[in-house]
Nucleic acid binder design. Structure first.
Length: 477
DNA sequence: CTATGGCACGGATT
DNA sequence: AATCCGTGCCATAG
């Protein structure tokens, strides 16, 4: 790309230097976690830069975006549900949990790579953080730092109340939010509670057999001792059914939530590794109510809003001393950095707006609704070079309303919807279909691919070939 | 003989 | 320019 072309992309900004362009490019490429470190370095050694930290929304406690009113509270009354809200949020608290004290700190991990591989408390914290009110954060931190190796809460709730001088209800409310996080049921006080949380979670998406809930809630100790006949009597049902319940529990629920991914072993067959990355963008329903407009929150990790230190400016004017040259250099560097960060934010904001307008139904309804989309299309629409989009997309992650964290590049995966349909077909098949039959089924749904491609997608989804499915799925039939 | 997976090619994408 | 992805051909396992 020529310099002229590049400058064309940034015509919105005042006079440009090649340094500016180079830096914006670099910044675009960075994850918000990496950006934080860059800014920290700049802030640390550059007296001309200052972060102000004063704007908080009076009603919801969120840091306000760089410009305008709080998009969460002030607009919530009159929002058109089809509209989406995009804003850039300096949410530094995402990055400042120190992982072993009961408070937030500004310490960063020494090794930047260790941040990607989180321990259980941090992993959970980062999931609940978007839902926590300001006064709930300390409570959440205390809960999460007192988990034992199985993920159970190892202190009494009353102790938390006393420590933070809050009501029992308040703590329970936080606890409830935490239990919904992955691993589901984490921070329960015992196995029974963990199982109940999982049943709760499962029943939101799939039907749960009758009696399961009640059996766990009311007769768990009998059930765990395999005294099925007693349980059956109490539930007024047959022993046969209680056995089914017991089977369902052992098949679908995990009594020690934390052991699935932490602790001694890891899932051997997960192709999406368990390592958690900070999301760079959050997408959620306004006030977390499905049906509300979507809110796109772009995380900017700077503490507060960056600006040129006014004291520094003043001092420079007042004292044309011998340091002036050096100070001026610092000042220029600082304002350059600020401009570049704004540029970065601007590009990402536009990008996300476009992506969400195209992929809205994927975000809401899931994999099958994924629309084909290329970086080039977006680049043309936004009038920027495609490599700009490439950089902005690379290495970034998005948290969807269902709390799944996916790479931003997923929005450009053409084959995802086809693979989702394929999965559906195989799940509902009445006999083990071979690849050619699967191909026909896909074509009936209007999807054109080659037979060889069906095989590849099948492998990608971890679906066994037909002759092996036959023995696994239809063993008795 | 059929179903599937390996390899490599070419076009699209980054 | 480098990489990714869908596809065709062919070997081979069942």
């Amino acid at each position: 790309m020529s310099l002229k072309q590049m400058q064309g992309q940034y015509q919105a900004q005042a006079p440009l230097t090649s340094a500016h362009i180079a830096q914006t490019m670099t910044l675009l490429f960075m994850t918000s976690a990496e950006l934080l470190q860059t800014i920290d370095v700049e802030l640390g050694k550059n007296p001309a830069l200052e972060a102000i930290n004063e704007h908080r929304c009076p009603s919801c406690g969120r840091r306000l975006p760089e410009f305008g009113p709080c998009p969460v509270c002030s607009q919530s009354k009159t929002m058109d549900p089809d509209e989406t809200i995009v804003f850039i949020s300096p949410r530094d608290d995402f990055y400042s949990y120190n992982g072993n004290g009961s408070s937030y700190s500004n310490d960063l991990p020494d090794d930047p790579y260790s941040a990607a591989n989180l321990d259980l408390p941090s992993y959970v914290l980062r999931q609940v953080a978007p839902e926590l009110d300001v006064d709930e954060r300390e409570i959440a931190a205390m809960i999460l730092t007192n988990l034992d190796e199985d993920g159970f809460l190892s202190i009494e709730i009353s102790d938390i109340c006393r420590f933070h001088h809050v009501s029992l209800e308040k703590v329970e409310a936080v606890l409830k939010k935490i239990k919904r996080c992955d691993p589901i049921g984490v921070a329960s006080r015992n196995i029974r509670e963990a199982l109940l949380a999982q049943v709760e979670h499962l029943s939101e998406s799939t039907p749960v057999p009758e009696f399961v809930r009640r059996a766990i809630a009311d007769h768990f100790d009998l059930l765990s001792k395999h005294q099925y006949s007693d349980v059956a009597k109490l539930l007024d049902t047959t022993v046969q059914k209680v056995k089914l319940v017991s089977h369902y529990i052992s098949e679908n629920l995990n009594p020690f939530p934390a052991r699935a991914s932490w602790g001694t072993f890891r899932e051997p067959n997960d192709n999406t590794p368990e390592v958690y990355q900070h999301p760079d963008v959050l997408i959620y329903y306004l006030n977390n109510k499905p049906g509300n407009p979507l809110v796109i929150e772009i995380i900017t990790p700077s503490r507060g809003t960056l600006r040129i230190n006014p004291l520094f400016k003043k001092a420079l004017k007042a004292q044309p001393g011998e340091n002036q040259e050096e100070w001026k250099k610092d000042l220029d560097k600082a304002s350059l950095l600020i401009k570049c960060i704004q540029q970065r934010n601007n590009t990402i904001r536009q990008l996300m707006e476009k992506i969400v307008s195209v992929q809205k139904s994927f975000i809401i309804h899931g994999d099958t609704e994924m629309q084909p989309l290329t970086r080039a299309e977006i680049a043309i629409e936004l009038g920027v070079h495609e490599s700009t989009i490439s950089r902005a997309v690379a290495n970034k992650t998005v948290q969807l309303p269902n709390r799944k964290i996916i790479p931003l590049s997923t929005f450009f995966d053409r084959s995802l919807s086809v693979r989702a349909v394929l999965r559906e077909i195989v799940e509902n098949e009445s006999h083990a279909m071979n690849d050619t039959e699967l191909l026909n089924s896909l074509q009936k749904k209007g999807i054109q691919v080659a037979r060889r491609t069906v095989a590849k997608y099948r492998a990608m989804e971890g679906i066994l070939p037909a002759h092996l499915r036959r023995v696994q799925k239809f063993a008795t039939a």
